[in-house]
Design a protein around this nucleic acid. Structure first.
Lengths: 216, 216
DNA sequence: GTCTATAACGAGATAGAC
DNA sequence: GTCTATCTCGTTATAGAC
């Protein structure tokens, strides 16, 4: 996104890259313009040229993250029509983030929600809404297909999936142990697998889940 | 705790009360000594008398929160020997926190983990460890009793429960909607109920769960 | 676009009087 | 125990030169 020839990233993109990582690791209230500027070896004044204030930078971060996530969801959908495979691929998106020792950008901001500017608040809720909308569709179709089994409205299960995956990331990070996330995700999704509910694989990767990489 | 006659709270306790709420709503990096002092109408210098620095205050907050939680767990265990009832009561502890529009103290600090002093980091991991230890015992016994059904090691399911409940709180708060938490918790626990796995109640409160109140 | 310089503020902390 | 006064530092932000 926004590259000159030879793939040299422009300044605005570099700023977003650095700020994104800082937020995902330290939180929105845990980083400063000075941190970003130091890493890029520019001044904070230059930062203000590209992003008027921290609020604007935050909005841009969420917008880019949400767009990238949406693209990844489309990719997941295009790679398999099997509901369970899609759900595992969805969990894989979270896992890819966790592998870089990061929290979901919107998950960590959800923790700081009360301290955020209004426009960032709105954008975060929209992110979760979009995820749940996508999941709802996948769940609904998966149950129609007979690939998934669950009771109640798909939107409700969608919310549960988002909540559990965000929580699994949140708790896994202090332990520095991604297997914590993996087992929680497997256990969660195994409860949705179709044919056998009782014999559903509680651990192990299950199936041949082609994980989808979030485009950087 | 730590009261004079007539139940007048001493200063240290009042500080902890105010700081606790501020952290649970705004995060550890989202509040300041000035915020606490203003609310108590004392100066920050007085705060420093009781708690040398923000790190020490943070440690005290976690210690008190963890102790209170441990007491609540003992209470849950004493009120029912049924595994499923105990698990619902456990989820009820989280719900009580969420009702006050707060996040779990250690959950919100988990999000800010990388920015915290080492001793706070350790205390947070210990909190999760203690919760998982307790849950592991309840799960193990519940399965022995035939009250619970799940596959794999109880410790793994314990981790999943903690993760999902923390995540359900995290996501429910931006929506200001506790039913989001309730449905996620119900769905999670219904998958552990013993006799019918397929007909397990997906919504509704299920059973007569006497919720356990965390002593203030 | 990026810099220097600086303003304006808030946060965490300490000394010493009362 | 609590205060006033003060200090130092970091953070966000702006003006204006290059």
């Amino acid at each position: 996104m926004k590259r000159g020839r030879l793939d040299a990233p422009d300044t605005a993109t570099s700023i977003l890259d650095v700020a994104e990582r800082l937020v995902q690791v330290r939180g929105f209230n845990g980083f400063s313009y000075a941190n970003v500027a130091a890493e890029l070896k520019i001044t904070t004044a230059a930062l203000h040229y590209h992003f008027a204030g921290k609020a604007e930078l935050g909005e841009a971060l969420i917008a880019r993250y949400a767009a990238r996530f949406a693209a990844a969801l489309a990719g997941v959908e295009s790679q398999s029509s099997d509901g369970l495979v899609r759900l595992h691929a969805y969990a894989g998106l979270y896992l890819d983030v966790l592998r870089e020792r990061r929290m979901c950008l919107c998950g960590i901001m959800a923790a700081e929600y009360e301290t955020l500017p209004d426009r960032m608040k709105d954008a975060i809720v929209r992110f979760f809404d979009d995820n749940e909308t996508w999941l709802t569709r996948v769940l609904d179709q998966g149950r129609e297909d007979g690939a998934l089994r669950f009771t109640g409205p798909p939107s409700q299960t969608a919310r549960t999936i988002v909540s559990c995956l965000e929580g699994a990331m949140l708790v896994a990070r202090p332990y520095g142990d991604i297997t914590r996330f993996e087992t929680a995700a497997s256990q969660l999704l195994s409860g949705l697998s179709s044919p056998s509910v009782k014999g559903a694989r509680p651990r192990s990767e299950a199936k041949g889940v082609r994980r989808q990489r979030v485009p950087s």
